[in-house]
């Protein structure tokens, strides 16, 4: 993706985000199934935390608690230090970037309208300009892509539009749920690297759900391993690889062929 083209100055934003996320002893069950059995995790401003774990470990539930798509049964979510339960969920979601595995583009909207969706919802002036600028940033020049329909794009291009949509309104926080999971290996690496530099550039506080440890290690400042609704270990990638906190984490690393001896960073 490389460096996005310079734009016209609206890009200006505080160089350092102040937005931290925090989960405090969050619990959630769906019927009989316990999704989160008391999870506490703090994500520092500008930090990228990857949530990893097997299916059913609760990682997506935790992610969706940060934009109020999931309301905890007990415990608290703090957004920028404020208790999320007192905030308007619609407002929270509009101010939080979100990317899901299938992209979830609106099939009856053009690429540009999709990208401009959140600025439009926020009532920003020139919503389409913001959307177009975001398209440029993710490597889909708006001159070429703005008028196209989602179904005319490749899987990788669609996922880039989803990322553009998530960042178009310049959120301080972005949440991603297996964002590259559906892509083939080469495309995945491309989109992932593109996102990595975009994230650093925009300095977004990031939570990324993935089942791919390589991806977690590649992108994240810290990796949080979930198992059956509890945090097994939270550590920087290097530390995770060199000192797995439990046999479970070690087994997970081994299965991903990420040995304990492998150097990182």
């Amino acid at each position: 993706m490389g460096t996005p083209p310079e734009s016209d100055g609206r890009v200006a934003r505080p160089p350092l985000p102040s937005f931290a996320l925090e989960a405090r002893d969050v619990q959630k069950r769906f019927g009989e199934v316990v999704a989160l059995a008391g999870v506490s995790l703090r994500v520092a401003p500008g930090e990228c935390v990857a949530l990893v774990g097997e299916s059913g470990s609760g990682k997506t539930t935790l992610l969706r608690a940060f934009n109020r798509m999931v309301v905890p049964d007990a415990g608290a979510i703090l957004l920028g230090g404020r208790d999320a339960s007192g905030l308007d969920p619609v407002r929270v979601r509009r101010e939080t970037g979100y990317v899901q595995q299938e992209g979830g583009l609106l099939p009856h909207w053009t690429v540009l309208r999709n990208a401009a969706m959140v600025p439009w919802l926020l009532g920003m002036e020139d919503a389409e300009a913001w959307g177009g600028e975001a398209l440029d940033r993710v490597g889909l020049p708006q001159d070429h892509f703005a008028a196209r329909w989602p179904r005319e794009l490749s899987g990788g291009q669609r996922q880039r539009v989803a990322i553009a949509r998530a960042v178009a309104a310049r959120p301080e926080v972005i949440l991603l749920d297996e964002p590259f999971g559906a892509l083939d290996a080469i495309t995945r690496a491309e989109v992932r690297d593109g996102f990595g530099s975009l994230r650093r550039e925009l300095r977004m506080t990031t939570v990324l759900v993935t089942h791919d440890l390589h991806e977690a290690v590649e992108l994240a400042d810290r990796v949080a391993v979930l198992r059956e609704g509890r945090l097994e270990q939270v550590a920087e990638p290097g530390r995770l690889l060199s000192a797995p906190a439990s046999p479970y984490v070690a087994a997970l690393l081994a299965r991903a062929r990420l040995g304990a001896g492998r150097a990182e960073e």
């Binding site: 969706r64 619609v90 509009r94 979100y98 979830g104 583009l105 609106l106 969706m117 959140v118 919802l121």
Partner: peptide, 23 residues
């Protein structure tokens, strides 16, 4: 109606009425 699109629309802050009307 396209569940992924509906979920994304909700997660990005459309109100239920907006989801109905626009998605």
């Amino acid at each position: 109606a396209d569940p992924a699109a509906v979920d994304a629309a909700r997660a990005l802050g459309m109100t239920p009425l907006q989801i109905l009307r626009h998605v």
